[in-house]
Design a protein around this nucleic acid. Structure first.
Length: 823
RNA sequence: GCCGAAGUGGCGGAAUGGUAGACGCGGCGGUCUCAAAAACCGUUGCCUUUUACGGGCGUGUCGGUUCGAAUCCGACCUUCGGCACCA
């Protein structure tokens, strides 16, 4: 950062910001009173992960929403704008492994520092409501919700693959696996390992989550959620494998194109599918086994990559298409996922591009069943995806394929070959993490009683302090014998605890309710407070949470509602996504060394300047680039505002009455109030501030020309300070105090504008000739259309362009312009 | 590949059918100063011989609608974001 003398410094920000922050804190100015009978407004910013040091990105997310919350407060709402910490998670555990510091200590130190930084921003957070998710009085309720979901069948245990590093002997998060597929710590190839894990049944709510009628969110986010849920309707149909005398006589596939069932020339099965080994013949077993091993090394993203060539191996077995008796080869290929549909795909190369490529590669038959009515598909050079007429499809020949879809589905259902079904891309939510720093899952495994939930009275299941974080191949909690070994609550015999912890998205799925009764001991939340406050009125945060956090929260709220705990359908009524702030045209990151730290800027120019600058950069949803010189401009403006109030006005303010000037002043102040108010509603902080700058420029100009009298000054100073208050809360408070007004400006009412003052005696009319600007005139409001036209046509500048030409028509837009159309 | 957003001075941006470039940064000229910084005042889209408060051009590209288009429509180009073999 450049030296401080480059910055304007007449405004003693350090002294003033300290003074008011202390006073607000002492007076509990921003304490939220539930009993207040003003209308309630819940404005929430996504809570941060306590990584230790705040960078300017945190400020970019938080100061504009604080300004909005302050604005709502001054508009007469009882505003709740709380803050807390998303305190469980991987970085704390990594710090523990790397530096030997306990995750709790590391996290709490970070929180302490961040709390100090957040306070320095001059925000209205009511710190009495702070929540810290790694504290037992918070995560106890994660466990409690888990038990409720378990009881109602929404939590279940099943096998799921996890990234595994053989050398480190540990499970890896996706972010710990390099793009090359190697472990980030030791460069060993990462494989998949099936683990028994816990899930929440979010798929049960798939259809309700698709209903977005009760949320006012950006279209972008809504469409991302739609795609993520990925509903598709089709038919589940079985192929006959009874010739192999296995337990299963049929192999099931799901298709959205049942009209192409007669074009199936191969079947593809996912490598993880339990039938694979049973169906593989001894000739092919070596090949198939090595293929499965290779597949386990590739990540899902790699497997699903369109760039990659399709690969697969033949199992040596066949199945029979029950509609036409065709004998069809069965392949294993990694482009089929066990987790979607039935994990088996019917290959129709003539009508699916991916199947077409696969068939070409392995020289499989390509059989046309839907004919293009125009070209008749003479040569099949690629899959034909459009609609057409059925051919090679037995008794369905000649029908349109759209009609055939239904008829074939009916036929299949009548014969018992399959049934219509709906599939979702979305899977159930895997919440198990083989980690230390998270909420212990409250389950006990007993040899006799099986899976036993921890009784509610025994909650919380505390995270033991003495677990070993170094990788052992087990979840860290299993190294704490005091923790693992317990007594079965059912039979009182020895039993073992679950040693996995919960995904931290569980914490963030309901934290917004905990703010309403943060210290409530009798339950997850005080239901009366939920009735009073309801869900979040305005939520703000980054778009990177478009799917996971925002979808999980919606699921949680619906599940809690169905458990009878609340009567709310959606957690966040309105959503706004801010963009990202960048530095040196790049995302800020420690490795690039371009992280902008707010503390030193706050020291040099003050929190108000940093706040205003961040809001002034550009539209909030588009993000922007940090620039020291831009900040300097804001510092200049804040200092100019300060000077307006602090310079000696005995010679500047005149005593004369001047109704024309008073009218002008009244016009500009009303215009500013309207602009600031309307733009704040729309999150357009940049233009709000620009209009405040215009107002202060006007005041300075009038002071310099000695054209402000006492009437104007008294009106304008009062309103200007109030308008400044949400943006620059410290300076506004000090100016308010210096004017001798009653503490606090933040309890003042937001000013109203009146249309009466926005009407001027004269209007500026633009004169165009053939749509080009040529002149403008000032006319009094009482002139009518023909009088204005007459004046306009007489203007010399206009005459230059119309003389000697035929006037075809004149367009007149009231109070705005005249356009003269000539040849 | 699909979906979405965006493209305007030297820079961040404003204007969502009616004076393009508000506001700010940067630049240039000046005031103050021994000098500089800071601050303040003036100026600043580009081109042109501004003798004229003069003329011409100008919102990614090409076309269209309109009296009038940065804004609406069509095609294309570029950038960014998201999703990605979903059977």
């Amino acid at each position: 950062m450049e030296s401080s003398d480059l910055f304007a410094d007449r405004y003693p920000h350090q002294k003033i910001e300290q003074k008011w922050q202390n006073k607000w804190f002492k007076d509990k100015l921003y304490k939220v009173n539930d009993k207040d009978d003003k209308p309630k407004w819940y404005e929430l910013t996504m809570y941060p992960y306590p990584s230790g040091d705040m960078h300017i990105g945190h400020w970019y997310a938080m100061t504009p929403s604080d300004t909005r919350a302050r604005f709502r407060r001054m508009q007469g709402y009882n505003v709740l704008h709380p803050m807390g910490f998303d305190a469980f998670g991987l970085p704390a555990e990594n710090a523990a492994i790397k530096h030997g510091i306990h995750p709790y200590k590391w996290t709490m130190q970070n929180i302490e520092n961040m709390r100090r930084q957040l306070k320095s921003m001059g925000t209205i957070y009511d710190w009495d409501r702070e929540i810290v998710t790694c504290k037992p009085d918070y995560y106890k309720w994660n466990q409690w919700v888990f038990l409720q979901l378990y009881k109602s069948g929404l939590a279940y245990r099943s096998y799921a693959p996890a990234n595994w590093c053989d050398s480190c002997n540990t499970v890896l998060a996706n972010e710990q696996v390099l793009e090359s597929g190697l472990c980030e710590r030791c460069d060993t190839e990462v494989i998949k390992r099936d683990l028994n894990q816990w899930f929440f049944k979010i798929t049960q709510y798939a259809d309700e989550l698709l209903d977005q009628s009760k949320i006012d969110w950006p279209e972008k986010i809504k469409s991302m959620q739609m795609n993520w849920i990925g509903k598709s309707e089709g038919v589940e149909i079985s192929f006959d494998i009874s010739e192999y005398s296995l337990d299963q006589k049929f192999i099931n596939t799901f298709t959205t194109r049942i009209d192409t069932i007669f074009g199936v020339t191969f079947i593809v099965i996912a490598p993880e599918h339990p039938l694979v080994t049973q169906l593989t013949t001894s000739d092919n077993i070596d090949q198939v086994k090595s293929y499965i091993y290779e597949a386990s090394k590739s990540s899902e993203i790699e497997r699903l990559s369109t760039d990659k060539d399709k690969t697969g191996v033949f199992t040596g077995s066949y199945c029979t298409n029950r509609l036409n008796g065709d004998r069809i080869p069965i392949f294993v290929a990694d482009y089929v996922l066990l987790s979607y549909g039935t994990g088996v795909v019917m290959g129709v190369p003539s009508h699916d591009q991916r199947d077409y490529k696969f068939a070409k590669k392995y020289k499989l038959e390509i059989k046309l069943v839907v004919q293009d009515p125009t070209s008749k598909n003479k040569d099949i050079l690629e899959a034909y995806l459009s609609d057409g007429v059925m051919v090679n499809s037995g008794k369905f020949d000649g029908l349109s394929n759209i009609e055939a879809k239904n008829k074939i589905a009916d036929y299949i259902e009548n014969r018992g070959y399959g049934k219509r079904s709906i599939n979702y891309k979305m899977r159930d939510w895997l919440i198990s993490r083989q980690r230390y720093w998270g909420t212990p899952i409250p389950i006990i495994y007993c040899n006799d009683c099986g899976i036993v939930p921890v009784p509610e009275k025994d909650l919380p299941v505390l995270l033991p302090e003495n677990a070993e974080f170094l990788p052992t191949g087990e979840s860290p909690l299993s190294t704490s014998l005091d923790f693992v070994n317990t007594i079965c609550p059912n039979c009182n015999l020895e039993a073992k605890r679950e040693t996995d912890t919960m995904d931290t998205f569980v914490d963030s799925s309901w934290y917004f309710f905990r703010y309403l009764s943060p210290n409530y001991k009798e339950g997850i939340f005080d239901r009366n407070k939920i009735l009073e406050w309801g869900s979040v009125d305005q939520y703000t945060g980054g778009a990177e949470h478009a799917v996971m956090h925002l979808l999980y929260s919606r699921f949680f709220v619906k599940a809690l509602r169905d458990l009878g705990l609340i009567n709310i359908d959606e957690p966040f009524k309105k959503l706004f996504n801010q963009g990202h702030i960048i530095s040196g045209s790049q995302k800020m990151s420690k490795s690039k060394g371009n992280v902008v730290s707010p503390d030193e800027y706050v020291n040099q120019v003050g929190a108000d300047v940093v706040r205003c600058y961040l809001m002034f950069i550009g539209p909030w949803d588009q993000g922007g680039e940090w620039s020291d010189s831009g900040l300097r401009g804001m510092s200049r403006w804040i200092n100019r505002v300060w000077e307006i109030f602090n310079k000696d006005k005995s010679n500047l303010i005149i005593n004369n009455q001047d109704s024309k000037l008073e009218k002008e002043a009244s016009y500009i102040i009303n215009k500013t109030i309207r602009k600031v108010t309307e733009d704040l509603e729309k999150f357009k902080f940049n233009t709000s501030i620009a209009s405040l700058m215009e107002l202060t420029n006007w005041i300075n100009e009038k002071l310099n020309t000695k054209s402000i009298n006492k009437v104007i000054w008294n009106d304008i100073k009062n309103k200007l300070i109030i308008l400044l208050a949400p943006f620059a809360p410290h300076m506004a408070e000090e100016l308010w105090y210096l004017q001798g007004y009653k503490y606090s400006v933040h309890n003042e009412k937001w000013p109203q504008w009146s249309l009466k003052h926005l009407e001027l005696d004269t209007k500026t009319i633009i004169i165009q000739v053939n749509g080009k600007f040529r002149d403008k005139i000032n006319v009094t409001s009482d002139l009518n259309e023909s009088e204005i036209k007459e004046i306009a046509l007489q203007r010399e500048r206009v005459n230059q362009y119309i003389s000697g030409k035929e006037i075809k028509k004149i367009i007149y837009i009231k109070d705005k312009l005249i356009n003269c159309v000539v040849n």
